[in-house]
Amino acid sequence: MPPSLLLALRSMAHNNAWANHRLLTACAGLTQAAFEAPRTGFFPSIQATLNHILIVDHFYVDALEGGTLGPAAWAERIPCPGVAELHAAQAAVDRRLIAWCGAMDEATPGRVITIHRTGRIQRERADRLLLHLFQHQIHHRGQAHAMLSATSVAPPQLDEFYAEAEAPLRAAEFAELGWTEATIWE
């Protein structure tokens, strides 16, 4: 496995955490009623959409770590009713994903991961699982982002992770998350 693929997957894990942080930080400006309010989207509210992201992260990160959580991840559809607790829970699972990706070696992306599903076991290569997970999170963050645009809170920029113009703001946010540019790229 080329080192460039490992770096790409690791940077995607950091980008995922950064986008979650930005979006949840913006959502902290909502009232609880606005967070829960019915909205147009695949899930009926910002709260439900962002909790779905958390649930799916728990499901797949657990599988990557060798766990057997499986469908129990969906036991509670809104495990974190408020933004503050959701932000903390999402940050914790994001750190687990970053750590897992950071520990990868050249053989890891091809390693088969066991995913416990209802009534069956799925086996998937780690790189394919990660790409699916990142795409899933981007997809639903986009929906929450669109919902947020219909509130009094301005939706944050989520696609400037690599832009040089965003470097000062990004550095401050990375410091909040406990990283630097060097953490990601070296």
Rank of each mutant, 00 (worst) to 15 (best):
D105C: 02
V112A: 13
A89E: 01
I55A: 12
M1H: 08
L24K: 14
R125M: 00
I46K: 02
E176Y: 07
F35K: 03
A17W: 06
R128L: 03
A99K: 03
E166A: 14
L9D: 07
L7E: 08
D62K: 07
E181R: 09
C101D: 00
M104Y: 11
S45R: 01
F42H: 03
A28C: 10
T49N: 10
L129T: 07
R10A: 11
H14A: 14
E36M: 00
P38T: 13
L23R: 08
L6F: 15
Y162Q: 06
A34I: 01
I115R: 06
Q157H: 13
A8M: 13
I184R: 12
H87N: 00
L64P: 13
A150P: 11
L169T: 06
V83N: 00
P44W: 01
R170T: 09
R22K: 13
P44V: 02
P2E: 09
A167D: 03
F43Q: 08
L50M: 13
G41D: 05
A150R: 15
C80W: 08
S4T: 13
L97D: 13
E85A: 10
P79Q: 07
P71F: 10
C27Y: 08
L50N: 01
L64S: 03
N20C: 04
G66F: 03
F43P: 11
V83Q: 06
T114H: 01
R96P: 02
Q137C: 12
A175K: 10
A28V: 07
G102E: 02
P44Y: 08
V112P: 00
T108P: 11
I78S: 05
I138R: 01
T31E: 00
I184V: 15
G110S: 03
N15R: 08
S152I: 01
G29L: 10
L24F: 15
L54Y: 15
P44C: 05
I78K: 15
P2N: 14
V56Q: 03
H136D: 11
G41E: 09
Q122W: 00
G102P: 05
P155V: 02
I138L: 01
E186Y: 15
I113Q: 02
R141D: 05
W74E: 01
G178L: 04
P109A: 09
N20R: 06
I121K: 12
H139Y: 07
S152C: 06
E176S: 12
P79I: 04
Q32P: 08
G66D: 05
L5D: 14
S4A: 14
T49V: 11
E173Y: 06
R77Q: 12
Q137E: 13
D127Y: 09
A103G: 04
A73Q: 05
L23P: 13
A37F: 11
H140G: 00
W74M: 07
L30V: 08
T118W: 08
G102W: 07
Q143W: 00
E160R: 14
C80V: 09
S45G: 01
W18L: 11
Y60T: 02
W185P: 07
P155T: 05
L148Q: 08
D94E: 12
F134P: 09
L86S: 10
A163E: 08
A163L: 12
